[in-house]
Simulated assay, not measured.
Amino acid sequence: MPHLTVHALESDLTGRETALIEALTDAVVAVYGDWARDLVDVRLIGLPPNRWGIGGKPAESPAPAVTFGIKESVFARPDADEIVARLVTEVTGAIVAVCGEGVRSGVTVDLVGTPVGRSGVGGVVVAA
């Protein structure tokens, strides 16, 4: 299940929540196919002003940052470089489509792979 956690200033998220969830889900589907749509988990974390710092001081207008959690096995596929590039491009495009072109240069997308057996659901370790 792809998990996308977006950190952004609360003021940048307000009123855009539904559009952002839909756009990010569509971005994942563009790479993996429609079968993945119901598995995409998007979490929007809004931070109040002065709770995001860059360079030792509060950031004035940071671009959204996305942590994209996926199974580690994706990185071992023969087409891993292509998949990674497409995910970064599509997710960035989704953020830009909703938040505006002005954020593009600062949007970060971190793909984080979880090894098999290193996560759980409902108190049970996921083995596959």
Rank of each mutant, 00 (worst) to 15 (best):
M1L: 05
P2T: 02
H3G: 05
L4D: 05
L4T: 06
T5Y: 02
T5F: 02
H7Q: 11
H7K: 06
L9N: 06
L9M: 13
E10C: 01
S11M: 01
L13M: 07
T14I: 06
T14C: 02
G15M: 04
G15T: 08
R16W: 02
R16M: 01
R16P: 04
E17R: 10
E17Q: 12
T18R: 14
A19N: 07
L20M: 11
L20C: 09
I21G: 00
E22L: 09
A23Q: 04
A23I: 04
D26N: 11
A27D: 05
V29N: 03
V29D: 03
V29H: 02
V29Q: 04
A30Y: 02
A30G: 10
A30R: 12
Y32A: 15
Y32L: 14
W35I: 05
A36D: 04
A36T: 11
R37E: 04
D38M: 02
L39R: 12
V40S: 03
V40F: 03
D41H: 11
D41S: 13
D41Y: 08
L44C: 09
I45Y: 07
G46W: 07
L47R: 14
L47E: 13
P48F: 00
P48D: 13
P49H: 11
R51K: 06
W52M: 12
W52E: 03
G53C: 12
G53S: 15
G55L: 08
G55M: 08
G56C: 08
K57A: 15
K57Y: 02
A59Y: 09
A59S: 15
E60T: 13
E60S: 10
E60N: 07
E60P: 00
E60M: 02
P62N: 07
P62Y: 08
A63Q: 00
P64L: 06
P64H: 03
P64E: 02
V66I: 15
T67R: 13
T67K: 07
F68P: 00
F68K: 01
G69V: 13
G69F: 09
I70E: 04
K71R: 15
K71G: 12
S73Y: 02
F75M: 15
F75G: 05
A76G: 01
D79Y: 10
E82Q: 14
E82S: 14
V84A: 12
A85N: 10
R86G: 05
L87G: 00
V88S: 14
V88M: 05
T89N: 11
T89I: 01
V91E: 02
V91P: 04
T92A: 03
G93L: 03
G93T: 00
A94F: 02
A94I: 03
I95E: 01
I95V: 15
V96G: 08
A97K: 11
V98E: 08
C99F: 11
V103R: 01
R104Y: 04
R104P: 07
G106S: 09
G106F: 06
G106W: 02
G106Q: 08
V107D: 00
T108I: 08
T108A: 10
T108F: 05
D110E: 10
D110P: 00
L111F: 01
V112Y: 09
T114F: 13
T114M: 09
T114C: 01
G117Q: 06
G117R: 03
R118F: 15
G120H: 10
G120P: 09
V121C: 06
G122Q: 03
G123L: 12
V124L: 14
V124A: 14
V125F: 07
V126I: 13
V126Q: 11
V126L: 13
A128W: 13
A128R: 14
